[in-house]
Design a protein around this nucleic acid. Structure first.
Length: 518
DNA sequence: AAAAAAT
């Protein structure tokens, strides 16, 4: 395995150096100028403060043909794209962008093409150590940064560098003279908001632009809400409820907001997601700030959300989509393990994921409910396994601590609910376990019908491994007919085979080798 | 019945 430095030069895809220490290292590959530190600290602050160890999203392959939704027209961006393909682009994905007719865009082959400010460029090269735009960046950045600042819906693979797209968009639109919120980014979880802020702080280190998180604090402190001073930061990143509330209590002025980002946008606009809050925020802003640019990013947009989203963004926006069959990351091998009962599942976790997994990088185990998170945690700890667990019932402080320990590499195995299914960027994760398969929630009376898989969540979960084109393995624990049916539906949906692995040491070793992890 | 958040 040439698992080391990226095959020199070129761009997007990167085979990061093998796990060396834990530094949540930058995404960009090769070398970059390494000038001396300059004290250009951005006066950033945030609610639940800590320190910063920025994560981020890498650049890599992304995209593919787009389902044309509304006004198709221009279709550029293909030239540079084909150039890029000789890294390890799996399928040389053809990108087709559906753009509004009147604005031609040219894909950016370097960050210099984008008219970024010198301070931002320096952040990209020095802090992030980026070299060239990833594919999604090359295509969307011109769309985001070129007047007349059209709305954008952009889908791209997990770990392909979406965060950088909207962070650069936000940084570039700020008027330094105005000390008030001008960019808003809405995220589904506080963890993701914090992570995005950290990326932004790192990338914007030399700009002096101020940024702040607006996320729930532990509600014990009654100081949180009313007594809070108005938000003066130029960029605000937060969760929908808190943002909404700060807006309605006038703590966040809305009149100067000119760019509004929804990370994990499909979930933010889904019926069973944050649709109401998101629309409320969007409408409040548009009422006072009619020219506000709206950016929607996610790795998944199912048909239903896509239809809705296209209505929200309407005519003049740009759109990028990827076929679902091309969304699974090729570098991540998917496996299934048949388990006769719950005990067998726990045994797999212990004997394979922990003991055999010692040779691996960090691992994350997804469960369906908070309760099973607690139970599994208890079972493992009881037997002396080192594991930490995160789920929404923990208080903010504990959540932050668990995440930080994991990001710092102090813990190796993390149990999580779908709290961390989306967006969580930790490059040393090379193994994901679906202790429970993700299924859609059904209301109403019980049925005998097997549950519907939650395809989007599945894709997001497995995307926690294989960040930035790294290799990874996914183990789905299958217990019973329903699981079996769920699994096969998932395989069909993404048209990606999931290989059976026997519950033996040899079989797992073989699987890990085949995945390139041993 | 994950998540956010507040009634």
């Amino acid at each position: 395995m040439a698992e080391t430095a990226a095959p020199a030069s070129v761009t997007s895809t990167v085979e990061p150096a093998a796990p060396s220490g834990n530094k949540s290292s930058p995404e960009a590959p090769t070398t970059a100028p390494r000038p001396a530190e300059k004290p250009g600290k951005p006066e950033t602050k945030r609610w639940a403060d800590e320190e910063d160890d920025p994560p981020e999203e890498p650049e890599k392959k992304d995209d593919a043909p787009a389902p044309s939704n509304s006004d198709p027209e221009v279709n550029l961006a293909e030239l540079k794209i084909t150039e890029n393909k000789f890294l390890d682009d799996p399928e040389d994905s053809n990108i087709s962008a559906v753009t509004a007719s009147d604005t031609p865009y040219t894909s950016a082959s370097s960050f210099e093409d984008l008219n970024l400010s010198p301070d931002v460029l320096k952040g990209l090269y020095v802090e992030m150590q980026f070299k060239k735009p990833s594919k999604i960046q090359a295509i969307t950045l011109p769309m985001i940064l070129t007047p007349p600042y059209k709305d954008l819906i952009a889908q791209a693979h997990n770990g392909s560098g979406k965060t950088t797209c909207f962070v650069l968009g936000m940084l570039s639109r700020i008027d330094p003279n105005i000390k008030a919120p001008q960019a808003l980014c809405i995220c589904p979880t506080r963890e993701l908001a914090i992570q995005n802020l950290e990326v932004l702080q790192k990338m914007g280190k030399y700009t002096g632009i101020t940024a702040e998180c607006a996320i729930p604090t532990d509600r014990t402190s009654s100081t949180s809400a009313q007594s809070r001073p108005p938000v003066s930061a130029q960029i605000v990143i937060g969760t929908p409820g808190t943002i909404k509330r700060l807006m309605s209590t006038k703590k966040i002025g809305v009149s100067r907001v000119k760019i509004l980002v929804f990370d994990e946008a499909d979930h933010m606009l889904a019926e069973d997601g944050f649709k109401d809050d998101s629309l409320r925020i969007m409408n409040d802003i548009k009422r006072y700030s009619s020219h506000c640019q709206v950016l929607l990013f996610s790795a998944t947009f199912n048909e239903k959300v896509t239809n809705f989203v296209s209505k929200v963004i309407k005519g003049g926006g740009n759109q990028l989509f990827v076929k679902k069959e091309e969304l699974s990351l090729e570098a991540v091998k998917q496996y299934k393990v048949y388990c006769p009962d719950e005990l067998a599942k726990i045994d797999v976790i212990k004997s394979k994921i922990f003991e055999l997994g010692e040779k691996l990088g960090q691992r994350i185990i997804f469960v369906r409910t908070k309760n099973s998170a607690r139970m599994l945690h208890q079972q493992l700890v009881q037997d002396g396994y080192a594991v930490t667990t995160i789920q929404g019932a923990l208080n903010a402080e504990d959540r932050d601590k668990i995440v930080k320990e994991f990001k710092d590499g102090l813990t190796q195995v993390l149990i999580s609910t779908d709290l961390l299914a989306r967006g969580f960027d930790q490059q040393q994760i090379n193994c994901v376990v679906n202790y429970d398969l993700p299924i859609k929630y059904r209301e109403g009376p019980r049925t005998r019908d097997p549950p519907e898989p939650d395809y989007e969540v599945y894709l997001h979960r497995i995307g926690r491994a294989g960040r930035f084109g790294r290799k990874g393995a996914v183990f789905n624990l299958i217990c019973g007919d329903w699981d079996e049916s769920t699994m096969s539906k998932i395989e069909q949906y993404f048209n990606s085979p999931v290989t059976e692995v026997e519950n033996t040491e040899e079989a797992f070793e073989g699987a890990l080798k085949a995945a390139g992890l041993l």
